[in-house]
Amino acid sequence: MMGTAFYIAAFIAILATVMVITRYNIMHALLYLVVSLLAVAVVLYLYGAPFMAALEVIVYAGAIMVLLIFFVMMLNLGKESAAQEKLWLKPRIWIFPSLLCIILLGELVFLVLQNHQPVSEVKMVNPKEVGIALFGPYIMAVELTGMLLMAGIVGAYHLGRQKEKTLHRFLENDQS
């Protein structure tokens, strides 16, 4: 039954996300996020989008998260970072943002619950239809996305490069 599977996956997704936002150690948080993403992939599959579920697993959980994990490992953020995080995340700090976000959630829920349409089955959308739409009416957006990715690559390369330290010749002697 789709309902049960959905509720289990949704529960895991929410639980894993709550774990993500409460962790002090970044590594743990990332791994919980991977769990959360996988649960969301299940939900996507249940909503009749198997191709999207696959992309979620491959691109999000696979590529992006792995990129983040490697990045964190590269910076070598260990116990100090976790201690710092613990110091910053005092319970007091949570109160106001949570209150604000609960109001926002309340409004979202209220808006979503305005849907009074009769219960119907989810509709399956084939990957083929997606492909046709993507390279049909949305072709221009696809081109733009390509440009965006290109810019991301160039930007990442440019920003990530370690610049050589250049000092003014008058200051060179003072550096010791």
Partner: peptide, 18 residues
């Protein structure tokens, strides 16, 4: 089902926001 999915999306979004 749409309501349920939307609620899940809302909850996840708000958690990220917090």
């Amino acid at each position: 089902p749409t309501t349920a999915g939307m609620l899940l999306a809302g909850v996840l979004f708000v958690l990220g926001l917090i």
